[in-house]
Design a protein around this nucleic acid. Structure first.
Ligand SMILES: [Mn+2]
Ligand SMILES: [Mn+2]
Ligand SMILES: [Zn+2]
Ligand SMILES: [Zn+2]
Lengths: 145, 145
DNA sequence: ATTAAAATTGAAAATCAATTTCAATTAGAG
DNA sequence: CTCTAATTGAAATTGATTTTCAATTTTAAT
């Protein structure tokens, strides 16, 4: 945690930006979230603790955090983006149930291997990937939906 | 083409909806597009041929076509959705260059195999998947960006 | 072919996530 | 501490998508 904040300060400074309380507060809050999150969720958490962080700052900081690789936009649901902390986390895919909207994570090294292979074959410089599988989860499937 | 239209009519009827000129016209136009497309592109094509199809109808028909499996939303760029015809097309992934925004398709049966495997393991009912890889294409990479 | 009910349409308004504007505030170099 | 440029929150704006609604069209039943 402390180390991540220090790293983030370095990242911000290197870009010639200012390391503000708001930016640190937002990153701290995000690091405390275990699940996926969206802007509303974050904003709600700040309101709860009487922090007056604005949505504008949340959006602005989220962009920086994505750019720095601290978080990733992982999927879109209900017309808006959902994020997750990606530090120390293996890339993984998301299975999204279109009925109950549950999101399950699946990590598979073979998939990462395939993607690395495409990268080399085509001489890409890979930054990130998103794999979303849509369908019905085991439970919803049983409801014969 | 004729067969697809007939099939679409059956689909529409089965849902208790009406097979309108607009719905047929939209599907016909989409079937004539080889690339990925978005709502603007479609709307522009109709304006060009003096067809007065509205955006509202385009959006409404696109939903039906996705539901019927005729097209898929394949990626999002510049804040809006991009689609492609998926009939008779193997699922495939998209490599998106974040610099020149070029989109390349990669089809790999091994990937489809992996996904089928997850489906069976977890007892999902798979409907569709989206795999997007973000990075720099060969050309943009050379510019040392 | 007529008729009538229900679905669909286009245009305009509404919604809503995300971005931008701008005056007031803050970070941080000197 | 002082000064300047960057940042902030609030409000306005943008832009994609959805909704509303009166007029039109489809289609099943006469
Ligand atoms: Mn995840
Ligand atoms: Mn494609
Ligand atoms: Zn489910
Ligand atoms: Zn490129």
């Amino acid at each position: 945690m402390e180390e991540i904040l220090r790293e983030f300060k370095r990242f911000i400074k290197k870009k010639g930006l200012k390391y503000t309380q708001e930016r640190e507060e937002i990153l701290k809050e995000i690091l405390s979230i275990k699940d996926h999150f969206d802007v509303e969720e974050l904003y709600f958490r700040f309101k709860e603790k009487n922090s007056k962080i604005s949505k504008a700052s949340i959006y602005r900081t989220l962009s920086l955090l994505v750019e720095g690789g601290y978080i990733q936009e992982v999927y879109r649901q209900d017309g808006h983006s959902h994020y997750e902390v990606t530090l120390h986390k293996t890339p993984h895919l998301h299975f999204i149930c279109i009925h109950c909207r549950e999101v399950q994570e699946i990590t598979d090294e073979r998939l990462n291997g395939l993607i690395k292979e495409y990268e080399e074959e085509r001489e890409y410089k890979l930054l990130t990937y998103h794999l979303e599988i849509f369908g019905l989860c085991k439970a919803c499937r049983r409801l014969k939906l």
